[in-house]
Design a protein around this nucleic acid. Sequence first.
RNA 1: GACCCUAUCGUCCAGCGGUUAGGACACCGCCCUUUCACGGCGGUAACACGGGUUCGAAUCCCGUUAGGGUCGCCA
Length: 442
Amino acid sequence: MSAPVRVRFAPSPTGFLHVGGARTALFNWLHARHTGGTFVLRIEDTDRERHNEEAVRAIYDGLRWLGLDWDEGAGKGGDYGPYYQSERGPVYERYLKILQDKGMIYEDAGALRFRSPRETVTVHDEVCGSIPFDLSNPGTHPDMTVRRPDGSWIFHFVNVVDDIEMKITDVIRGEDHLSNTPKHIELYKAFGAEPPRFAHIPLILNPDGTKMSKRDKGASVQGYVEQGYAPEAVRNYLCLLGWSPKDNREILPIGEIVKIFELKNINRRSAGFDLDKCFWMNGQYLIHMPLERFADLSLPFIEKAGIAYGTRDALLPALALVKEKVKHLTDVPGWIEFFFNDDYAYDEASVTKALRSEGALERLHVLGDRLTRVEPWTAESIESAFKDLAATLGIKTAALVHPARVAATGRSVGPSLYHLLELLGRDRVLARFTRTRDKFAA
RNA sequence: GACCCUAUCGUCCAGCGGUUAGGACACCGCCCUUUCACGGCGGUAACACGGGUUCGAAUCCCGUUAGGGUCGCCA
């Protein structure tokens, strides 16, 4: 009965991928994957100048980062190309001819306009329902221009032509196009083509309810890459903007979302982007992901920070210790730096609090002495040593823990102390204690 | 201005004629704890307003208000 689903994401190459666009792409992708259909990428560069590679790359990179692979289209090929509008001039000429032959085109000040049939057109939308639009009044609904005097094409025209030519069955796009849709349907009818199913999804707004544009915080997908978000977290968060599984689940594997995603379950209300929640979700993903994945994602940030970690194998134990602490991948270097640098810096506030207090250095000395006898050198026996010594000295364990942490890492916050000491190894720990006492004895 | 869409905690989402209006983020307590987190427990907090319809409305209808969108020789 119904033809296989073909959806498309048709961004114009502005130099970056907007989260709103990414969300539109995501919903198209979900619908394609859910139905076993085809996801097409078309670049809408109708501007006079040809598309520039860098701007197109930003779109590719953003989509790939989010794991939204396309089956056909720009950078991929397929049977309905070319997939750059700037290369489709002949197709548009052909379609224009069809309308001209039917007498539906007229010239106006050098531009070409499509003569509206002036009827009521009902948009049947998968998420908005059926909406009749009365286009009878030329005053409020002027005939649309399809081509400028300089020969360049107008979006509405080429968009429809391409969707027909590329056999798009489902047009899933932002709600900002809802009011344009009746005009598009007029075009479909004029071409004698069956209009696709439409699904207009609510827009993403800023936290203050205003429209999210380029400049706004969190607007660019690239920003999430740079700030250390896991793509699966951002993708999951985006899924929840306007769609939900209806059962209060929020963190869902993408495979599960693909399985249960339905256009009909998209709501009609614009959603404000909640960076806090996205941030929280990122932390959740980081905590629960496999160590290897965490390492893959962390590596670029570690390298950028210039940490001499040696081999990946040497890195893993340190990452394992900090994985559940990290909220942003950008924080990873700061959390593990001391493992790979014996000449770590001391945080002044931490030093003041933990090392300059009465008897702190003396306790550190006693502790170091005690640690020489810990056998085996494991977190467990190290912990016992701390507790035994504290009991012997009649002090709280914390009175040993804090100086030890600052001595060994230079900071007062970090991963589990006993595990961190174990990983560092006895020799390095004792050397650090000594170094610390020498440095702050005076 | 005209037309279209929308309206539940601060935010996101659930609810689709009868619920103590539910979950999540954020926030506030308490617990866990060597720090910071994680986690656990509890709390504050919402049906925009006014009319209908109905035995009964967050749920249906109308209006008002508010927000958003579209009315381009932008995409």
